[in-house]
Design a protein around this nucleic acid. Sequence first.
DNA 1: CACAATTGAATTGTGAACAATATAATTGTT
DNA 2: AACAATTATATTGTTCACAATTCAATTGTG
Lengths: 156, 156
Amino acid sequence: MTSMRKKSAADLPLQLGNQLCFAVYSTAHAFNRVYKPLLDRLGLTYPQYLVMLVLWERDGLSVKEIGERLFLDSGTLTPLLKRMEALHFIRRTRSAEDERQVIVTLTAQGAGLRDKARSIVPPAILDATGCSLAELADLHGKLVRLREHLNAAVEG
Amino acid sequence: MTSMRKKSAADLPLQLGNQLCFAVYSTAHAFNRVYKPLLDRLGLTYPQYLVMLVLWERDGLSVKEIGERLFLDSGTLTPLLKRMEALHFIRRTRSAEDERQVIVTLTAQGAGLRDKARSIVPPAILDATGCSLAELADLHGKLVRLREHLNAAVEG
DNA sequence: CACAATTGAATTGTGAACAATATAATTGTT
DNA sequence: AACAATTATATTGTTCACAATTCAATTGTG
């Protein structure tokens, strides 16, 4: 009967990790579904929007630097950036100092999208969360700490 | 100069929604990277592992019922379940009472994987989070509430 | 200077995720 | 019973996400 285990009280804490991961996973999808109709009005997907947020903050970053900020690698970013270039939101140019690097810069259209994005997205998101600012800040801080623990665990 | 806005203090609360969403999104990826080497030893991907968790809890569910528990639709689940069937973890059979439904049942191999999964996954996850049980429970509860708000916002 | 090691992007292949559409079975209505 | 609406699954096409590999440019070392 050794393999005929029933639910035991000792399993409950162990299941918490699984449950938390699923909560994160499914909340990410829920967020995506909220963002989608908003970002459709800008012609962006959510990962593309993240790239725009990064570039609006600091233009002219390399693919590597964008990847560091978003925790994404070139296998994800290269095709994504090519699509954004085809949509005329950004330009990709080889760096003159270091020919290995590709520098990503906003086009006028991409830079101009910022104000429209700012007026559409954040208010709707804030509303959809149904959270107070204090709750949002609390959750944000705890998730960042958790993410750092997880990333550290993968390294070590 | 109307479009030459600078960072204003009023933007900070508005950016919290964006920041929270990115924290959720990037934490989901971080979790995935922690799970991957563990699930590789079981021959499962994370979404496949979620299906197994659901079936270990209650075998013989329809595709629809699995989708309700995981917030996924048939466009995602059908190919995923076909891959799991090809790996002999599950079987897919049309229901006799309602020929529209496909009932998913564990194979002996799939059912047998449970104990191995239980010994490998939860302890490693718990460790990687670096959180106390109280912190995990707190975060889990808050994320579930947030997810429900977001899902409600998409419906209405 | 030569050349091995490293770095930054790109490429290839697999597996999600989801919108939109299609198809077949079931249910509801008259 | 006929047939319109609904339901459950499957299919198609697009976009991530990432491991593994490739390739060219740069850096480090003798």
